[in-house]
Design a protein around this nucleic acid. Structure first.
Lengths: 227, 227
DNA sequence: ATTACTATAGTGCGAGTAA
DNA sequence: TTTACTCGCACTATAGTAA
């Protein structure tokens, strides 16, 4: 759906069009969108032809109702803005399992991290990480997660090396009908963005799910810190 | 700002552009918006020229940051969608005082309504209504209010006449620095929309505010029912 | 790989106007 | 008042291409 048709549809929604029929004239719409009456009229015709609205000409205007496909389009737009500005409590992200380089496992097994995990999560992570590869389309969700505040895991030095700060977010992980609660996503503080999400859990998740590389999982990340 | 420039700006925001600089190429943007690389390039130039973004060409793309005017534009869009789909707790509406026909006063003084007001609001309304005339631009807010659930005032019959159902919403009313809490908006259940908001209060508001017709007031309506 | 210019194709806009 | 058609023109999009 083209942006200016969506803008027209939004105007109808603002008049209450998602909840009941509204009486609108093409010149009302025109002045709101700052286009000519003719263009507004054309927009309404197009919205109708593309199945987003019902319309019926009436005395001094038209009676318009937004159809379900129109509401769907508006909601999709809203949910995108919500990722940027809304105060979301959970985010669902989809990814496919892949075998890491063992790096994640190396890092988390460091005592400096491990003691903090146990203290803050109240459970002891299994020694490896569960790595989900994400699609480009999931970047907005990752960004929304990074904008929230997780539990801070402090960095430390060991053997002359620096191990950086990280945020952790509690999450659940799901494949088909099976769900494992009490997992956590680790998000290194410095890296800008990454296409792989590292998850820790008290369980050995690969075995728990009987999973193989390429399997699709959905994780539900909690953005609120529950003490 | 034109809708398709806003759509481009939203894409940048979804990549995290409201919070930090992001690396984006014109072809990334092009494929998201389903336009040519050339058009996407032009959009970015326009967003820059109109002061919505900062940009700097870089290896394999460009580094883009959204400037405050860009964030303002996006937030405005978000707040409009919020009126339609968000679960708002309060809404602020502006209107100008006008003298009603005495009708509102006649209705609310009916015993059938008055006893319900006292029961549900815990105060006795002053005998008249305070009428604020609204601008067309406030319709979305009125619609958002009507979509919420207020306290239901039952209708009744008297002397062969029917007095209809209505919703009431608690609100405060403000002119400049003076605020009066404990007011309520009455919204008749049937009328489709009206350009006048009727407010009741335990006080004689005109006197309280030393107000005259045409004065501008802001009311803050609470959409959550506090028992 | 990029960005983004020029030139052309095409879409969309709005004035005029009929119903 | 409406809606919405035709039509001319302008703006916008894209192909080709240079840097």
């Amino acid at each position: 759906m083209k942006p200016n048709l969506l803008a027209a549809l939004k105007y109808i929604a603002l008049q209450g069009g998602t909840r009941h029929s509204v009486h609108i004239s093409s010149s009302d719409l025109a002045s709101m969108l700052e286009v000519s009456q003719q263009s507004a009229s054309r927009y309404l015709i197009q919205l109708f032809e593309e199945g987003y609205i019902d319309r019926k000409l009436a005395q001094g205007g038209q009676i318009i109702g937004i159809k379900s496909s129109g509401i769907t389009a508006l909601k999709k737009e809203f949910s995108e803005y919500e990722l940027v500005f809304g105060d979301l409590k959970t985010i669902e992200i989809e990814g496919t399992l892949e075998t890491g380089l063992g790096e994640g496992g190396y890092y988390i097994s460091k005592k400096g991290y491990m003691t903090q995990f146990q203290e803050k999560l109240k459970w002891k992570p299994y020694k490896g990480t569960f790595n989900l590869r994400l699609d480009e389309s999931q970047i907005p969700k990752i960004e929304a997660m990074k904008a929230a505040e997780g539990l801070l895991i402090e960095g430390f030095e060991q053997e002359g090396r620096t191990f950086g700060k990280a945020w952790i977010f509690k999450c659940s992980i799901q494949k088909e009908v099976k769900i494992v609660e009490n997992c956590a996503v680790i998000s290194p503080k410095r890296t800008h963005y990454k296409r792989v999400l590292e998850i820790i859990s008290p369980e050995f998740l690969r075995k728990e799910f009987n999973a193989k590389d390429g399997d699709t999982f959905t994780i539900t990340i909690s953005l609120v810190i529950l003490k």
